[in-house]
């Protein structure tokens, strides 16, 4: 594995068995290059948090190896941990302590004296819009603020690898955008970022590379761009000028009526949408506007998970 030696994260043949026989991870291989912005996508229970738990040592792996910037988490425990900052899925700070104290204490656990930590805490609390709240008990923060507090806490020792487990769960759209901008900024400044998310739009607008994981296996590991290329269909919603009673029919463009003045159509990537407009026009239907339905990645995602389901069933019947 020489070529992976300097990767930000290198995971090989990682497995995790919870309890006696629940296999949460069934042999994960994953490489994340330094400076990357990497998304870990997958449905509920796929094993995303388990992978993150193992990276930051809260979960004990069953087998396999994990290396962070060349430091193996078994052999070089202390050095590996200095490289990682983690934002967990669930709130895990002391609700009775104040944000400022939480940050300075966390810095202390990394051996950073309070004088240095105070400056950094100010910087990150300000950047994340929490400076005004630094001295209130953290249980009185809103959900979005709590999440940002955990981001600040993860950055206080200035890790080279930042791992975020659903950083924008329960955060409103505006805040989500500002969190994205913030993450993009620190990624640009050189921090490697791995995040898990259910919002595919999030992965699309933030990340360069992606691994899709389902029931403990990676079923797709590629760049976002490649992934989007794989999409061969897009679904549009078309609003039309005059109300209609019957759904129009156009060859190669399966249309369906949503209501009297809107249609839905699924278009192959290599077909021109112009032909559809022309055909509709010929039938006396004028198009007012058109928009994308849902997220294209979303469809792909379901597609992949569906396929994985089929192959997993195949596997089961072979046994």
């Amino acid at each position: 594995m020489k070529q992976f030696e300097n990767n930000a994260l290198s995971i090989t043949a990682l497995t995790k068995v919870y309890g006696k026989d629940f296999e949460a991870l069934k042999g994960i291989d994953l490489q994340v290059a330094p400076g990357d912005f990497f998304a870990l996508l997958g449905p509920n229970g796929a094993g995303k948090s388990t992978i993150i738990g193992i990276i930051c040592s809260l979960v004990r792996k069953s087998s396999g190896s994990v290396t962070i910037f060349g430091k193996n988490i078994d052999e070089d425990f202390s050095a590996a941990k200095q490289f990682v900052g983690v934002v967990p899925q669930e709130f895990n700070f002391n609700q009775f302590e104040k944000p400022l104290d939480i940050l300075i204490t966390q810095a202390g656990y990394y051996g950073i004296p309070a004088t240095v930590a105070a400056g950094r805490a100010e910087k990150y609390l300000k950047q994340l819009g929490l400076w005004d709240k630094r001295n209130i008990a953290s249980r009185n923060l809103s959900g979005g603020m709590k999440r940002r507090l955990m981001v600040a806490r993860a950055l206080i020792h200035e890790p080279k690898l930042l791992v975020l487990d659903e950083p924008t769960a329960g955060v409103d759209i505006e805040l989500r955008r500002s969190m994205w901008a913030f993450l993009k900024k620190i990624n640009k400044q050189g921090t490697t970022i791995i995040l898990t998310t259910h919002y595919l739009e999030e992965a699309e607008s933030l990340c360069r590379n992606v691994a899709i994981i389902d029931r403990g296996r990676i079923i797709q590991n590629t760049s976002i761009r490649e992934l989007i290329k794989k999409l061969n269909k897009e679904t549009f919603i078309i609003d039309i000028k005059d109300k209609i009673d019957v759904c129009p029919e156009v060859v190669n463009y399966p249309l369906s009526m949503l209501d009297a003045s809107s249609l839905e159509v699924s278009v192959d990537k290599n077909r021109s949408i112009n032909d559809l407009f022309k055909a509709l026009n010929e039938q006396g239907i004028q198009v007012l506007s058109m928009r994308n339905k849902a997220n294209r990645l979303e469809e792909l995602f379901f597609d992949l998970v569906e396929k994985n389901l089929v192959s997993a069933d195949g596997e089961a019947s072979d046994e």
Partner: peptide
């Protein structure tokens, strides 16, 4: 208490021996 609130994790993820 820190196990219950899970803030013990702050220590467990750190390099503190």
């Amino acid at each position: 208490g820190s196990k219950f609130q899970r803030n013990i994790e702050e220590l467990l993820v750190s390099p503190t021996p």
